[in-house]
Amino acid sequence: MKKLLISLLFLLASFLSVFIFVYSQTKPVSKDTSAKYFLILKGTGASQVADNLKKSGLIRSPLLFKAYMKFSGLAQKIQAGQYKLYPNYSLFKVISEINKGPIEVWVTIPEGLRKEQIAEKYINVLNPPDSESFRNDFLNITKNKEGYLFPDTYLFPWDASPSLIINKMLATFDEKVGEISLEKLVMASLVEEETKTDLERPIVAGILYKRLKARWPLQVDVAPETYQKLGLPQAPIANPGLISIKAVLTPEGSPYWFYLHDSSGNIHYAKTAEEHNLNVSKYLLTR
């Protein structure tokens, strides 16, 4: 009986020791009340988040964070974005704040979108309280900015205004592109829309420049007016990415004057109208 009592007391003491240790690991790292902005990148799992929180001085035990997130089912619900956390938060307060979602969110704007499509991207992600007002403001501010809204992945607060967003996109354009003539930007927008891979962009740019120099109509499907009129459209038709912009700055010479894409997206070049017509028959008219 005495041995049993000793064993029970030992187990109780062990349990209390473990409990006290675990409890101590849930307490705030410090009494510091200054905010820390904690960034979670896309694709970051709970394990990496835990390690980063530890390195940032926001939690004591990455192991407890991982265990809690796993067994509570929250590990798969972590959202990418920026969080405002404090070192005087307990472990459970940190988890609660992360579970609420970020104060800033990632928005990816792919290459080749028009300003109307970009506005819808932001509306879908940010979900502003008055989407119609947001849309109208965005389109009014970007009235003469087509082509300059740089495609990229941006981090914005949920309540970001159209002006804040547009200023950031224009600043990114200035940073990554710099000075460029309107004519080259228009050409870059055509190349962006006419091509499907990075490898073909400089070649297609070279073909279109050859047509311009020879005073041919450009005849690009993405800008129907180029079938009737010589020269470039008056303004960019979309917002090109950096690779398309570089393609028009350094176009690649080739013997080709024509090109088309088959139903699988593969490009086929031709040196003469006769070769091009054969490609049309082979790749577009046959099933």
Results as ranks from 00 to 15, higher is better:
168 K>I: 03
209 Y>V: 11
142 T>F: 09
211 R>S: 04
177 V>M: 09
165 I>C: 10
146 E>F: 10
157 P>E: 06
160 A>Q: 13
155 L>Y: 04
143 K>Q: 11
206 G>H: 08
216 W>N: 12
204 V>R: 00
192 E>G: 07
206 G>A: 08
220 V>E: 06
226 T>E: 09
157 P>Q: 08
179 E>L: 11
198 D>P: 06
167 N>C: 09
158 W>R: 08
206 G>C: 03
144 N>Q: 14
149 L>Q: 08
154 Y>A: 08
150 F>D: 00
185 L>I: 03
207 I>V: 11
168 K>H: 14
219 Q>S: 09
230 L>V: 07
188 A>S: 11
174 D>A: 14
143 K>T: 12
139 L>K: 04
172 T>L: 14
229 K>D: 08
227 Y>D: 15
186 V>R: 01
197 T>W: 07
218 L>R: 04
200 E>M: 01
185 L>S: 05
159 D>R: 15
215 R>L: 14
191 V>R: 00
142 T>S: 10
195 T>V: 12
218 L>I: 05
140 N>W: 07
158 W>H: 10
203 I>V: 15
186 V>M: 03
159 D>C: 11
224 P>R: 02
150 F>S: 00
229 K>Q: 12
179 E>S: 13
177 V>R: 02
139 L>V: 11
203 I>A: 01
149 L>M: 09
165 I>N: 06
154 Y>V: 01
150 F>C: 02
224 P>Y: 13
230 L>H: 15
149 L>G: 08
216 W>S: 05
200 E>D: 05
150 F>A: 01
193 E>V: 02
160 A>D: 12
150 F>E: 00
168 K>Q: 14
209 Y>W: 08
161 S>A: 12
201 R>D: 01
221 D>L: 13
183 E>P: 06
140 N>L: 12
211 R>W: 06
197 T>Y: 06
221 D>M: 09
163 S>G: 04
144 N>L: 07
141 I>G: 01
223 A>R: 02
198 D>M: 06
167 N>M: 10
170 L>E: 13
143 K>R: 13
180 I>R: 05
199 L>G: 04
165 I>H: 08
195 T>F: 10
185 L>R: 01
164 L>G: 05
204 V>C: 07
